[in-house]
Computed example of a mutant assay.
Amino acid sequence: MNKDINRERIVLYDDTLSILESIMAAIMYTLVVMVVLLMLFIFYSLGINEKTFGMTPAFVTALFMFLVPAINISEVNVVELDLKKNQIFTTQKIVFYKKVKVVDAIEFEYVALNKSNFSYTVTIWYQGNRHLNILSFYKKEKALLYATLLCKQVKVDLLDKTSGSSKWIDNSDL
C-alpha cells in the first residue's frame, strides 16, 4: 500500500532546512526572545516613563533585526504533485505556521524549460494558460535532467525554449 501512495504524489521541490540553517534560525529566535524579555524586564523594573518610552524604538529595531532573518532562514517550501487527483500542493512552513495551497489541475499539458538572464526555469503548464514555476537552475544540464524526469513522471511532452527557437520533445523520445 505504501508503494501506491508514493506513486500518486510526486515531490517536485522540497527545501527542508539543513543542520546549519536550523542552528542559525534557533540562534536568531533565541535572540528575539532575549530582546523581548529584556524589554519586559526594563519596563517592569523602571516602569513606563519617558526614559523607558524613549528606549522603545531601539528595542523594536533590535527585535526586527533578529526576527526577519530568523523567519527567512526557517522558511520551508514544498511543492507536491498528485497524479491521481490532478492537484498541485504548495506548502509553506515557518516554525509552527503552515499554509497549504491546493490547485486543481484538470489536465497537465506540458513542461517548459525556459532561459532567463542567469538561470534556466522549469515550468509545468496545465489547464489552458495556467502554469507553475517549479525550480530555477544555473546549469542547463541540471535543468534539462530535472525537466525530463518530471515529464516522464507526469507523462507529458517537453518544450525546450533555451535556444533561439522553441523545440518540442515528445515524451516517448525522453
Rank of each mutant, 00 (worst) to 15 (best):
Q87P: 02
T121N: 12
V35R: 01
L12C: 04
R130W: 09
L159D: 02
L20R: 13
N114C: 06
I5E: 13
K152L: 12
T52Q: 10
R9D: 02
I73T: 05
D14H: 08
F118D: 15
Y110V: 05
D104V: 12
N114T: 10
D157K: 08
L150I: 09
D104C: 04
I71L: 09
I42W: 03
T148Q: 15
Y120F: 15
T123Y: 02
N49Q: 09
A58I: 15
V95D: 01
T148R: 15
M24S: 10
T90Q: 14
K85S: 10
M28F: 13
D173R: 05
S116G: 12
E8T: 06
T148I: 14
V78C: 07
Y146A: 11
I169M: 04
K85R: 13
K99T: 12
Y29P: 00
N114E: 15
E75V: 11
M65Y: 13
I5W: 00
K3I: 06
I94S: 03
K3V: 05
D82M: 02
Y120D: 06
Y13E: 07
S74F: 00
L17M: 04
N2C: 00
S166M: 05
N49R: 10
V60I: 15
M28Y: 07
M28T: 02
R130G: 04
D160Y: 03
K167P: 02
L38E: 11
M1N: 04
T61N: 00
V111D: 03
V11R: 03
Y13A: 03
V76I: 14
R130H: 14
L145T: 10
A143T: 10
Y29R: 02
M24T: 08
V102F: 03
L12Q: 04
S166F: 01
M24P: 02
N77H: 11
K3N: 07
G164S: 11
L40H: 05
A147W: 06
A70Q: 01
A70Y: 00
Y29D: 00
L132C: 09
M55I: 09
K152D: 11
Y29E: 00
V79I: 15
R9Y: 06
C151H: 05
G47R: 09
D82E: 09
I5Y: 05
Y110E: 11
F137C: 09
Y138T: 13
T91M: 09
Y13D: 05
V68S: 00
L37R: 01
K93H: 08
Y110W: 12
V36D: 05
R7D: 12
V156A: 04
R9W: 07
L132F: 13
W125Y: 15
N129M: 10
L46Q: 15
N129A: 12
K161T: 11
K142E: 14
G164Q: 07
F96V: 13
I19Q: 10
Y146S: 06
V76N: 09
F96Q: 06
I5Q: 09
L12D: 01
L31D: 01
V11D: 01
K84N: 10
L17G: 01
V122T: 07
A25C: 07
N171Y: 06
V36W: 08
